[in-house]
Computed example of a mutant assay.
Amino acid sequence: MKNSIDRLPGGPLSRRSFLLSLSAGAVAVGLAGCGDDGDPVTGGSAGADAGFPLTIKGAEGDTVLPARPERIVTVGFMRDIDEAVSLGVVPVAVTPATNFDSGLPPWVEAKLGSAKAPEQLSYEDNLPFERIAALTPDLILATDSYSLADDFANLAAIAPTLSYETDVAEDTWQTRVTRIGRALGKTDVASRLVTEVEAGIATAKEKNSAALAGKTFSFSLLNGEGQLATIILPTDASAQFLSSLGLTLSSKVKDLEQAGPAGRAVVSQERTDLLDADIVLFSFRDSDERTQVESDRLFQALPAVKRGAYVPLEVETALSMAFPSTLSIPYALEQIVPKLVAAAGKA
C-alpha cells in the first residue's frame, strides 16, 4: 500500500552533475561485471550466454545486456529484491525495505536462509549513485522504483537498468518476475514460479471456498493525515489478492470519491459505517494507530466488528499482498488466509 511506505527514493542528482562525476573507467567496469558465485539460494545457474545478448524494452528506457549479468543491484521499493532472490540470485546490494526492522521482508529472509544477505544501501533522499557505481554492477533492477522516471538516466550511466514495462503501479507480479527472469537468464525458472504461485492461489481459493466465496470485504488504513482511508478499486493489488480467494469488494465503498493515493477514498469518522462488510480488514503501522481506530465508538459499533468478523493486520503482513511477488504471495496465503477464514465464520 503506497500510504505505508516510509520512504521512497527521492529526487536524483542532475543528470549532468552525476555524469560528470562518474569516470569513464568506472562506467566501463560496471558494464563488464565481475565473477559469478553461483546461485547461493537455489543452487545451480543457467548457461552464461543462454539467450544473450538481449534487449528488454521498458517504459523508462531499454535494457541492453551483452551477457548474463552476475552482479546485481536492486533499487526498487521491495519487489525487485523479492524476485531476484526468488529466482536464486542474491543481489550484491539493495535499497532497504524500510517498513521492516531488518531492512528485508521476512519472506526474503526466509528464502535467503544461511546465504549472505546483500549490502543495504544507506541514503536519505537521493539514491547513492556513487556507491552503486563503486559496486560495479552489470545489472540494476528498478522495476519497483517509484522515482525511476527521474533516476533512470543516472542509473543507466552505471549499468544496464531494468525498468517496469508499463508503470510501477500497473505491472502485474507475473509481468515483473517474467521480465526479471529474462534479464537474469532464468526465463524457465520465472515461468515455473508463476505456475507454482498461481496454483497456490487456486488451491487456497478451492480449499476455503465454503467459507470465503461471495463474502464482501473492506480494507482500510490511516493515511498520512490520520484519516480513515479505504480501498475503492477492485484493481488495487490488495483487493485483487482478496478477490482471487473468492471475496468481493464491498459495494458501499466502490463508488466513493477518490482522495489521496490512487484507489483510496477518505472516509469521515461520522461515516465509519461505510466500512462495514462481511469481513472488515484494517492495516496498522503501529500500536498507536490501532488504538486510535479500535477505541472509536463508531468503529466498535460496526456489525462486523461486533460479531468478530474484523481482521487487523500489521503493516508488514499487509504489504505481502499490497506489493505481490512470487515470494510475498505464498507468505500472504499462509499469514492472512487463516484470519480471513476465521472472520468469515462469524459473518
Rank of each mutant, 00 (worst) to 15 (best):
T63E: 03
T63L: 07
V64D: 09
P69K: 09
E70V: 14
M78I: 11
I81D: 00
D82Y: 04
E83H: 15
L87D: 09
V89H: 00
A97H: 07
A97M: 10
T98D: 00
G103K: 09
W107R: 10
V108M: 02
A110K: 13
A110S: 13
L112H: 06
G113D: 08
E119L: 15
Q120R: 14
Y123R: 08
D125M: 08
N126E: 08
L127Y: 14
R131C: 13
A133K: 06
T136C: 11
P137N: 11
L141N: 02
A142S: 13
T143I: 07
D144Y: 03
S145Y: 04
L148N: 04
D150W: 13
D150M: 13
D151N: 03
F152G: 00
A153S: 06
A153T: 06
A156R: 11
L162V: 05
S163G: 12
Y164G: 01
T166N: 09
T166F: 09
D167Y: 12
A169T: 12
T175V: 15
T175Y: 10
V177L: 11
R179V: 15
R179L: 15
G181E: 07
G181F: 05
K186D: 11
T187D: 13
T187Y: 01
D188A: 14
D188V: 12
V189C: 03
V189T: 14
A190C: 07
L193N: 06
V197M: 04
V197N: 02
